[in-house]
Design a protein around this nucleic acid. Structure first.
Lengths: 199, 199, 199, 199
DNA sequence: AATGAATGAGATTTCATTCAT
DNA sequence: AATGAATGAAATCTCATTCAT
């Protein structure tokens, strides 16, 4: 009788290994054998948990999404003031450490893969719905309290979330003019832009 | 005897075919044989012009960049007022027709490929330097004339360009909440945000 | 404590499952996992009873043989007149129900497998010796009583048994011109051919 | 410019190699690599001509059918008397040489494969329609001339063709009681059975 | 300048078998 | 007596690249 957690643990190990490998060499170059090696299993075992490479990647994308969400939620909820919440939210996207960097790699790969895969598009739809709703909620709250300029909060949220995507992408690409520090400043300036005079 | 332009023409055909194929199925799934078929040539011929697949993609990315630039420049220069220039610039990024859509596909594929390819990162660096300089120039000009709010024009330019990238990405992904029309409105709102009171 | 029949029962279950699976998807496509699932056991259990897949198939072929024999014997012995015996014997080969159909599937798979497996050839030798002896006996008896035409009873028996094999094969293959009904008529006509004028 | 016959030649080589390999080790055990080696090509080349192993086998079955037909037709047409035609036809099925033996191996493999493959069943349908029509024609002709006993010629044809299948199978299986010589005698006796008294 | 048949290295996938429990 | 997670050897298939013509 195997411990009931063995399967779940193994699955998680493989997904974590997948994220690491994808971050390092990209989905295109990633081989199932790489994931196997990294997770200390055989290719047979990887296929025991995920029938195809495609299924493995899909699961890894979803797993990354849930992990991101779990990391983000407490960060945002730590603040009460919508201005702080917005800043904390944007801050949590800065690729400051290995985990966030790896996570960003997964998002970028997801974008490219989703362009030609209906299931992944659906995942993207969920993911962005989630972010948009969160940010729009913060902005609406801030507008109610008079901190943020008027204007459709959904449009503002979309602009901010998309900007963060574009910025992180350039940072990940190692752009000499878009460093982590630059990204931070652009984000700060963007918040300034939507703050009302007094606040 | 052969017209000297034959080679150049053939090369262009292959690059155009590459863009079409990449837009349709993605770089990952694209085979040299697909490009050959699409351009009406043999795989041998494709390799006659581009030694490796990697070289073909690199050339296609560069070709796409120059084509984008050529399309963009007259659009921007058609206006004198920096506010109109900025609006025209952003407008030219909306994925309204097949050419712009295919072009966006190439950019997105470039991002992913460049994450693990130094040469392509260099290309990205050039491309973004170009856009940033253009937009920053427009903003600086607008600030000088009092149309735009104060603030580091480079930061503002980076924010705008990144936002456009992120927005186009979601439109390309067929997001139900980020349609072409939505993207247009977000862009318009963003311009409003940096306009000064009077203008 | 365990009933001594438990093992025998389990074994039988697995063999029955094997016949079902082979009939449905063929030996080539059959996986040990399919047999396990069908018999409600694990792959480990299947291997507990049959060391290798080859051994499992061999046992299943033999089991099918004995089951066929057990079904056939009372049918033939129910008649005293050799003409009736022959008709009853041929009748019992018509693929009229699921059991006979599955049994035929096993024979056909055995033929193909035996072409390259000495042990299975030996099994085939036994099986056909059995049929041939039975039919030759019936014919010899009928000739003695003046019901059947003269001629080497062994040759006649071989002709009949082989014909039945060939006919059943075409019926199993769903041939539009060799239906169950057609097969029945061919068998009847063949019996007529060896009957003497008066009988 | 390659010779136009190169492709056809190469294809034929691969199909011939397939028949040899299938006859030797069976479809189940046959690997694409075996066919490649036998035909002096690489596995890549085999796949260049036949996308999948299944397609290769299908083509090999069809090729074998056409080759059999081509071998058989002149043999039958060499005789005018329906009794000779029938004898010549049955004779041509005796596994007397390597080619006929290999051909029989292909038929047997076809049967088993066709049980679970619609396309192959269709091929079997064509093949048997062909044989049945030929034999029924010969019998009908013989009956018109008073050489053969009365009775449905289609039933008689089916009985004969099926018998030959069953007999050849046992010969191929190396049955000690069904040798080539035995098969020949059973066939002769069967012809005797349908001859009228005087002829 | 162009071809396309042929290659072979390498990737995914399958599955009988094992073994710790 | 039974399990089923894990394995790894082996098979199919893919495709960028080459080269004789």
């Amino acid at each position: 009788m195997a411990r009931p957690s063995v399967e779940a643990e193994r699955r998680e190990q493989i997904l974590a290994a997948t994220r690491e490998v994808v971050a390092e060499m990209g989905f295109r170059a990633m081989r199932v054998a790489d994931v196997a090696k990294r997770s200390g299993a055989s290719t047979g075992t990887v296929h025991y948990y995920f029938e195809t490479k495609r299924e493995l990647m899909q699961a890894a994308f979803e797993w990354n999404f849930h992990a991101s969400q779990a990391r983000r939620t407490p960060v945002v909820e730590a603040h009460e003031d919508p201005r702080d919440r917005l800043r904390a939210f944007l801050d949590s996207y800065l690729p400051v450490d290995e985990v966030v960097v790896q996570s960003w790699h997964m998002w970028i790969e997801l974008w490219t893969a989703a362009l030609h895969d209906t299931d992944l598009r659906e995942l993207n739809e969920n993911v962005y719905g989630e972010w948009r709703r969160t940010v729009a909620g913060i902005i609406r709250d801030g507008q109610d309290r008079g901190y943020f300029v008027t204007g459709d909060p959904v449009l503002l949220a979309n602009g901010l979330v998309s900007m963060v995507d574009g910025l992180a992408l350039q940072v990940l690409l190692g752009s000499r003019s878009m460093t982590l520090e630059q990204m931070r400043r652009v984000c700060e300036q963007s918040v300034e832009l939507i703050l009302t005079e007094g606040s």
